[in-house]
Simulated scan of single mutants.
Amino acid sequence: MRILFVPAGSQATIFSFVPLATAARNAGHEVFMSATEDLIPAVVNVGLAGYPVSTLPFNYFIGKDRDGNPIDIPREPEAQMRAIGGGFARMAAATLGALIDLAEDWRPDLVVGGPISYAAPLLAAHLGIPYAVQAYDINDMNSGSDPGAHEELQPELEKLGLERIPAPDLRIDVTPPSLRQENGPAAQLMRWVPGNRQCRLERWMYTRPERRRVCVTLGNRVGLAHDVDFVRRLAKDVASLDVEVVIPVPGNAEHELREALDGVRVGWIPLDLVVPTCDLIVHHGGGVTSMTAMNAGVPQLILPVVAYSTMSAERMSARGAANFLTPERATPENIIEMGQKMLADSSYRDASLELAGEIAQLPSVGEVVGALEELAAR
């Protein structure tokens, strides 16, 4: 069987697909993954074959219309999610041709996309093959982006003779049962497994220090939604809690942060290695970061910058495993106060460990490969 994975346009979405894509390949199937040109190294570095679909990065499509005119992203949550859906739809429209070209030489039997990988259902409809969607995190089955995508993709839908974006033939959800939304769509549950690229091990990465350790990370967003200066200020705020601070960041920000933060461990450190050694993680609300912390049973202090991240932060906070501060509340004083509270209250750790236990009980990635095989055989 040939399976084409179509992520949404960020390293996080690529990493989310790695366990299932690797398991499918290890089961003897041919696996390709598409990506924008700037993200092909991320695909290749996790051991998968990468097919480039655009020289433009995904943030270009979020910030510009089809004619290249700038677009302002609204702050109101519902409007913001519609706008984001429109941006990913423009990316789908721009990359669909390249995917069709690939299929002429290497026709897949099945397409697996993410909830905002709108090129995946369009390609599957064009080829007349099954389409599965895998959630990247706990929000993905109902994020509010589809209406904006549907509006933006009218030309492509009309060309395919479709009234709306096709629903998947199979939904794969990684949400722990206690966080699943009521009346959500039926789905094949799957245990979430970290899939990011790795590094040369050093002992401090996988052992707990004598002092409490706090991880501060903005994922791969340094230079995008946040700048290096913000990370530096945030790290200094957290360090005032009398803890060891570790900062996983992309290589482009490592040198500047290392010079500015003497004694702080900075660099590309795989979260799945270091987070289990931490007592708290302070982060931007990215889906992969949240899932990694949840999988490790580590409490989360979340500083969301977009509506999507706020939704998941609210759900984890209601479960008792996290707290969050909106941008207007994320002052140094509030970050320090909230961090102290979470480090002192064991209930956050208890709730986080319960979620980790739920994740561990979900069907394995290998079992879900079997579900893909059944889907393609229909």
Rank of each mutant, 00 (worst) to 15 (best):
M141F: 10
R66I: 08
P166T: 07
E156S: 08
T95H: 13
L102F: 13
A125V: 00
Y131C: 03
Q154V: 15
K159C: 12
W106C: 04
F88E: 08
I165G: 15
A98K: 06
P74Y: 01
A120W: 08
P74N: 06
N142M: 06
L153T: 02
G148M: 05
L153Y: 01
N139A: 08
G113Y: 03
M141Q: 10
L110V: 00
S145T: 08
L48I: 07
I84F: 11
A149P: 13
P77A: 04
P70T: 02
M81D: 00
A79R: 09
A92H: 11
S117V: 05
I100G: 00
E163D: 15
I100R: 10
R82F: 05
A93S: 15
A94M: 02
T55S: 14
I100A: 02
L110K: 08
G148N: 07
A49Q: 12
Y51S: 01
G63L: 11
K64T: 07
S143V: 12
A149F: 12
G68V: 04
N139I: 12
N59I: 03
A98H: 07
L123D: 01
G148W: 12
N59M: 11
P121N: 02
A83V: 02
A92V: 04
Q134V: 12
G148R: 07
G128M: 08
I84Q: 10
P108K: 14
P57V: 01
A167G: 14
P70V: 03
A94N: 08
R66H: 14
G148C: 06
P130T: 06
I73H: 04
G97W: 10
P108Y: 11
A103Y: 05
I84E: 15
Q80W: 12
R164C: 11
Y118C: 03
G50C: 05
L153S: 05
V53Y: 05
H126S: 05
G128C: 04
L48A: 03
T55G: 11
P70L: 02
W106L: 06
H126V: 01
I100S: 08
P77D: 06
A103Q: 09
